Amino acid sequence: MSRLPGRAEHHWLWQEDAACRELGSRLFFYPTGEQRAEREARDAAAKEVCALCPVQRDCLRHALEVGEPFGVWGGLTAHERRELRRAGAGRRALRSTG
């Protein structure tokens, strides 16, 4: 008898349909030493990609569930996700995304 949990593709399969899949990580994660104005512009560009993404909710749900500490996920920056969690809205966001 196996005690392994079994297949788990369902945890990441949504990523195959992500709008950012072929864009690389530079747009979504800030480099060391990035200035505030540059970060704001990069975050805004990343959020534009997220706004058109068919799996935006899945992405945000993932980031909230695992406590992703960096980058833009599901259209929110790490700071914005921390604020959601701090306000207790993260649980509500997870429930409303199905």
Rank of each mutant, 00 (worst) to 15 (best):
A19W: 02
R81T: 02
R95L: 09
A45P: 10
R86K: 15
L4R: 09
G74Q: 01
E22V: 06
L84W: 10
P5H: 04
M1T: 13
R92F: 07
P5K: 09
H10E: 13
H62Y: 15
C50M: 00
A44E: 15
K47Q: 08
L60R: 04
R92S: 14
W14N: 00
V66C: 03
R39C: 11
E80K: 04
R3N: 14
A18P: 01
F70T: 06
V72Q: 06
S25L: 13
P69E: 04
E65T: 11
A37T: 07
L52E: 15
R91T: 14
W12L: 08
R82P: 02
G88F: 03
A87E: 09
Y30T: 12
L94A: 00
R92N: 05
A78D: 14
P54A: 06
Q35L: 13
A87S: 14
L76A: 05
Q35C: 11
V55C: 02
L60W: 04
R95A: 13
S2N: 04
P69Y: 05
V55L: 01
A78T: 06
S25K: 14
S25N: 14
T32Y: 14
A37K: 08
D43E: 15
G6L: 11
D58K: 07
F28I: 08
R26A: 09
A87T: 14
Q15P: 02
G67C: 07
E34S: 05
C20G: 03
C59E: 00
W12Q: 09
A51C: 05
R81M: 03
L60Q: 06
S2K: 10
A41I: 03
L84C: 06
R91D: 15
A45C: 01
P54L: 03
L76Q: 08
R95F: 07
V55I: 01
A93I: 11
L4V: 03
R91P: 12
L76G: 02
V49I: 15
R82V: 07
Y30K: 10
G75W: 02
G74N: 05
R3A: 08
A89Q: 15
E80R: 13
G6Y: 01
A51W: 01
P5L: 12
S96T: 11
Q15F: 00
P31H: 01
G90S: 00
G6P: 02
L94G: 05
L52N: 09
D43G: 01
G67P: 01
E80I: 03
A93P: 02
E22K: 06
S96E: 15
R42S: 10
E38A: 12
A45T: 04
E16S: 01
R61I: 00
A19F: 05
L27I: 06
L13M: 08
R26M: 12
R57P: 11
